[in-house]
């Protein structure tokens, strides 16, 4: 299971970073979303991977760490709010600047 989780985090972050480096705001926001999915999974996995274990601390039996699950909930909520904000900001920029480019080359011909 480790390799599956690691590979999906890597794929998400890789795609996210690629899209973040694009010049159009839509791709950048999409990249941000993918990157944050990858990071959320990473935070989740920081408590190690357990299958069928209760998230309750006990001295004798193995347990799944509940703290990263709580952290990732917070991170998801914050990430969701930030994505909503960035979307409105991007739309505002499209209206104000007349272009959806984020690399300050508004005047140049699009590829």
């Amino acid at each position: 299971m480790e390799w599956l989780v690691a590979a999906s985090i890597g794929l998400l972050v890789g795609c996210g970073v690629y899209l973040l480096l694009r010049s159009r705001s839509f791709s950048v926001v999409l990249g941000l979303v993918l990157f944050s999915y990858g990071v959320n999974l990473f935070v989740f996995a920081a408590g190690r991977l357990h299958v069928n274990q209760p998230p309750l601390i006990s001295a004798s039996a193995p347990y799944a760490d509940p703290l990263p699950q709580a952290l990732v909930l917070t991170a998801i909520v914050i990430g969701f709010a930030m994505t909503a904000f960035v979307l409105t900001l991007v739309l505002r920029a499209l209206a104000d600047l007349g272009s959806d480019r984020v690399d300050d080359r508004q005047g140049e011909e699009d590829q």
Partner: peptide, 13 residues
């Protein structure tokens, strides 16, 4: 912020 989360998760791990 995302890098912050990554760093914090690594320290926690």
């Amino acid at each position: 912020s995302l890098l912050f989360l990554l760093g914090a998760a690594m320290l926690y791990a």
